[in-house]
Write a protein that binds this DNA or RNA. Structure first.
Lengths: 212, 212
DNA sequence: CGTGCGATGTATCGGTCCGATACATCGCGG
DNA sequence: CCGCGATGTATCGGACCGATACATCGCACG
């Protein structure tokens, strides 16, 4: 999961660890808290060893002076490699079961702008299925086993059930949008020709190499 | 967390591992998936070593016959000790930061029937604060940094923000109920003379004298 | 009658990720 | 000139998971 997230972020720009953590927190704030350095740095090392990313000490501007007085510990900037981009695409394409749990789905969703429509659809439907199962489990407990549980536990289940129903509706909407449209939600497309930013990512609209 | 959950469940009845897992899944279904055996069994061993629980091979009924033909591997039933109950109470009372994250809050909440009102209130308010912070973070991103993010990421944040707002409202209700009443939600308390069970826990609405 | 299969049940192993901690640099206000 | 909060890199122990293995039991199906 972390691997996927890092590879995805580094595709937007080279970054050092601290930045990576902040961007990740911004992008996944809805899903989970900030990721720990205790995971981040070891993972960066692993990715580098695998050749998915390269590490480069930050160049001291133009001056070759800068006399390393105090053995300046420079920031280490990581850049994704071609192999890394390939790896990212591969991770996105193949959906294991972990793709549909809370964190896994969140990370995949956060990179939907770099995902082709067929895969997006597959992931959304897998997630929906997963949530529907959870929902059924909760309904069972609230129905058949209600008298075995105390009022607080019951209330917890009710709240959880509500959240499940909401998420299913949300997913339905996204799926419908995905099937026959472009923007993820946006009840009012109307005007708003979303002017592209800088570079590669094919924004929700459409992507080129795709066979439905 | 697992430690707390096990101690709490074993207070309702002695159980073996498999049962523990199932009960846990039922009680925490709204919060998280079933807990892994890879966590459960080591934790049981740890708890036993600490003296919080005791292990007893299931007695083969009355017969001292039962000739252990195939070295029958019996089920192992765990029972909580007096020290274990003390430990549970202590874990409930002292609220670290992990008390307010998703899993931690869920486990604490699931045992609110065994928690005194002051502690319940403290936990609910701590959780609310935590969620409010997350909510503010999301609002910030959606406000100030919106144009840096793609439509999908934005949609994810919106959905997360919505969930936060809902949870805050839910917590508000629970807190209000807690301050001046007893039952967690239950629009209709009405009759139901709350008769205590054995000791401390003031059961919210009313609880059956459960005997499995 | 057997045979397989799903539920019950205990257990380990490798790996991911977290929380606490340590340490160094930088800019800024007091 | 000093402290202090943001920036920045890094490690360590521990919690928890997913896959896997293995054994028993009841029962449906041929």
């Amino acid at each position: 999961m972390l691997e996927l997230a890092i590879l995805g972020l580094l595709q937007e720009a080279p970054m050092h660890g601290y930045e990576l953590r902040k961007e990740l927190a911004a992008k996944l704030g809805a899903i989970r808290a900030a990721i720990s350095y205790g995971s981040l740095y070891p993972t960066l090392r692993r990715l580098q060893a695998a050749g998915w990313i390269t590490e480069a000490a930050e160049a001291p501007a133009t001056a070759e002076e800068v006399p390393a007085l105090t053995s300046r510990r420079g920031r280490v900037v990581y850049t994704i490699t071609a192999e890394g981009k390939e790896r990212f695409a591969q991770l996105i394409a193949q959906a294991g079961p972990e793709t549909y749990d809370d964190t896994g789905f969140g990370v995949h969703f956060a990179f939907f702008a770099r995902t082709d429509q067929a895969t997006r659809l597959r992931i959304l439907e897998g997630r929906r299925r997963r949530i529907e199962e959870r929902r059924e489990g909760l309904r069972d407990v609230l129905g058949r086993a209600a008298e075995r549980l105390d009022a607080y536990t019951l209330e917890l289940q009710r709240h959880g059930l509500d959240a499940c129903e909401r998420e299913v509706r949300w997913l339905e909407e996204l799926i419908a949008n995905e099937r026959s449209g472009r923007a993820p939600t946006v009840p009012e497309p109307g005007t708003a020709g979303g002017r592209r930013e800088n570079e590669s990512p094919p924004p929700p609209g459409e992507s080129r190499t795709e066979r439905p």
